[in-house]
Amino acid sequence: MAIDKETVKKIAFLSHLKIDDDKIEETEDEFNKILNWVEQLSEVNTDGVEPLVSVNDTNLTLRQDVVTEGNQADAVLKNAPQAQYGYFTVPKVVE
């Protein structure tokens, strides 16, 4: 499955990364190299094989419904590049 420039642009968009126009071709080539390489997997017969999601053999352990955290707005905001009035702030979102 070779990919094209459009796909590279789409993937960059979904990843929220910018690829300069003069780098698209290079990225496309590299992508195709990688995809060709991983496509070895198609040699493996996986009929009837269940996908492995986790190597843990146990079930999920649940947490009790108790409030254990909070009232730490200062700590939450400590590393914010921009904050005002106790909020994180970002460039205005136009809906």
Partner: peptide, 26 residues
Amino acid sequence: SKSKIFSGASTHYGSDTNENVSFVDA
């Protein structure tokens, strides 16, 4: 519920800004 679905922060409506926030929620 008293606490959030994936963290121990309160679900209380109307608290001060960013007070019911765990590091998981953030």
